[in-house]
Nucleic acid binder design. Structure first.
Length: 560
RNA sequence: UCCCCGAUGGUGUAAUGGUAACACACCGGUUUUUGGUGCCGUUUUUCCAGGUUCGAGUCCUGGUCGGGGAACCA
């Protein structure tokens, strides 16, 4: 099992990251019975984003890799900010990413009684006490980094008194803020978190699961390690910001003498041109800057899903990003590459014209329709072929015709010849402009013996254009997205709201799509030939009124 | 001021005392009925100073820079 990551003999051995190295060492040493049991512990107070996706891939992926299990645990110790709406969204996102919490689904709130008993145990061991001071007094006594704190006047209460006072807290006899339970550690400790941390506070707030059963709630530090321990988590993986909490995590486990789960921290994911904090994303939603948590411009998993990202692409991305301890900012182009790389191999190619102008084939008989065969995916023969209608009247992309061009122009222009994708080669005849000089219609002649697949014309056009038959095309709305922020580090200078990109969304109406797209399903991503990858918007698409989102453009090598 | 963590091309990640490599990005070439894909190639790298060693990105000491830390948040 220890070398399950190395794959088959002929596969090149991927370098292990530092957590994999630790796990393999632990397995070799027989630690935790040689088992790997991880957990993913979101607080249900917001939607999951791409940063969480990395954490999910790490915790679930490592367990998978070493034949272990993963628990999903909702860390719901603060009823003020949590709700079932978030619980359900989180579940959906993890499942969509392709992970199965085969170790079970749990809630920290399931352990409230157990945690309460642990606290009583600590009191009995003389390691916790009830403190009746205000939050301000406690904060003041904490001292400062480099300056020791001072003991609370309530620090030496007797075990019996502490037990009675804690019981009163539980029974609802204390006002919020009137009393807390604190661990008795060391008010002069170098690590501020070890200076008698508060472990229980009073909150008269209904909890989304336990209702009004409890009026005292454990703090993160008193809940997390113990929950890991209760679930016999061997490797508790979290982000760097919890490094300072590890001594406390271990202190509680040792003081309580419970199963020794072990915490390992790694660097969280940061992406340029976006923000990742739940609080700030919430602000975008609340201020209506975006169309909800699943707006296709959001870095949320639900936003990426609606945008057209595939679970596979996100998993590959998480893998490429790596696991290490130094702070990082990943270039968003790696995310885009991951999607293109996945979709290039899988997405069916179709044709659509976003900014249509008329293309008339003068020498093609009016009223005649010819069905042409075209491959669905040149990268995948098994994707098969389909028929597309061709006729005299077509739609072409306005930007594919220009009057004044240079030698680097591969498209249509006066005197030029181009191939219509999967159809015929056509040569320019003339064009019509409106009173503003805008080209509204282009006229061409086709070369009859240049039909795709049976071309005997010998003509070698420089470019290939996409098109749709005017008679058969359907109308669609297409939404193009650009990055939400115009600055690489939106939080770097001042308010991130000032860094918003005002042109992050453009809505195109009257786009022309080929008839086969009438049967498009939400969840399928298509390549619109030469334009990018597009998928039906799950929110705004109606019957007969399709709305497509562009997930990502094709890489554009044209410098013209 | 104190504690913890980190530092390798533009961005990430490897190299586990023995030739600094891989991916993305960039640039160039080639193929192409997608200016896509594929293929080939160019450019660019160990924070600084000492030390240990036949040999240091790696070990040691000191420094510099960056991140985290004083919520009844997680």
């Amino acid at each position: 099992m220890a070398d399950s990551s190395t794959g088959t003999d002929d596969a090149p051995k991927r370098a292990l990251n530092f957590i994999e190295q630790k796990i393999e060492a632990d397995i070799a040493a027989g630690k935790h019975g040689g088992e790997v049991h991880t957990r993913f512990p979101p607080e249900p107070n917001g939607y999951l984003h791409i940063g969480h996706a990395k954490a999910i891939c790490v915790s679930f992926g490592l367990a998978q890799q070493y034949g272990g299990k993963t628990n999903l645990r909702f860390d719901d110790t603060n009823p003020e900010k949590e709700s079932v709406e978030y619980v359900n969204a989180i579940r959906e996102d993890i499942a969509w990413l392709g992970f199965d919490w085969n170790g079970g689904e749990y809630y920290t709130s399931d352990y409230f009684q157990q945690l309460y008993d642990y606290a009583c145990d600590l009191i009995r061991k003389g390691l916790a006490y009830a403190d009746d001071q205000t939050a301000e007094e406690i904060a003041y006594q904490k001292g400062a980094p480099g300056k020791p704190g001072e003991n609370s006047p309530f620090r030496d209460r007797s075990v019996d008194e502490n037990l009675r006072l804690f019981e009163e807290m539980k029974a609802g006899k204390c006002q919020e803020g009137a009393r807390v339970l604190r661990a008795k550690i060391d008010m002069a400790h170098d690590n501020m978190l070890m200076r008698d941390p508060v472990i229980y506070r009073v909150k008269f707030i209904e909890h989304h699961r336990t209702g009004n059963d409890w009026v005292i709630y454990p703090m993160y530090d008193f809940a997390h390690g113990q929950s890991d321990s209760i679930e016999r988590i061997s490797h508790s993986l979290c982000s760097l910001e919890f490094e300072n909490h590890r001594p406390l995590y271990n202190w509680f486990i040792e003081a309580l003498g419970i199963y020794p789960s072990e915490q390992t921290e790694f660097a969280r994911l940061n992406l340029n041109y976006t923000i990742m904090s739940k609080r700030k994303l919430l602000r975008l939603v609340e201020e209506g800057v975006v169309d909800g948590w699943d707006d296709p411009r959001m870095p949320t998993i639900s936003g990426l899903r609606r945008r057209g990202y595939t679970p596979e692409s996100i998993r590959v991305f998480a893998d490429r990003v790596g696991v290490a301890k130094r702070n990082n900012t990943i270039d968003v182009s790696l995310l885009e590459w991951s999607l293109r790389d996945d979709l290039n191999r899988r997405a069916p190619r179709v044709m659509a014209v976003l900014d249509p102008i008329r293309l008339v084939v003068l020498n093609y008989p009016a009223g005649e329709t010819e069905m042409l065969t075209t491959v669905n995916n040149p990268e995948d023969e098994s994707a098969g072929t389909r028929e597309i209608p061709f006729g005299r009247e077509l739609w072409m992309e306005a930007e594919d015709f220009r009057v004044d061009v240079n030698k680097k122009w591969f498209r249509l222009a006066p005197g030029r010849t181009v191939r219509l994708k999967s159809a015929y080669i056509v040569e320019y005849v003339d064009h019509i402009e409106d009173e503003n000089g805008k080209v509204t219609e282009v006229h061409v002649n086709y070369i009859p013996n240049s039909r795709s697949g049976q071309d005997t014309s010998g003509v070698k056009p420089k470019g290939t254009l996409h098109w749709v038959s005017a008679e058969h095309a359907q109308d669609a709305e297409v939404r193009l997205y650009d990055r939400l922020f115009k600055e690489e580090s939106p939080e770097a200078n001042g308010d991130f709201m000032d860094a918003l990109n005002p042109e992050s969304l453009s809505i195109l109406k009257g786009c022309k799509i080929e008839p086969s797209l009438a049967e498009a399903q939400v969840g399928t991503v298509f390549q619109f030939t030469r334009l990018g990858y597009f998928t039906l918007d799950s929110k705004y698409s109606g019957l007969g009124a399709p709305v497509f989102n562009r997930a990502v453009t094709l890489k554009d090598g044209w410098k013209g």
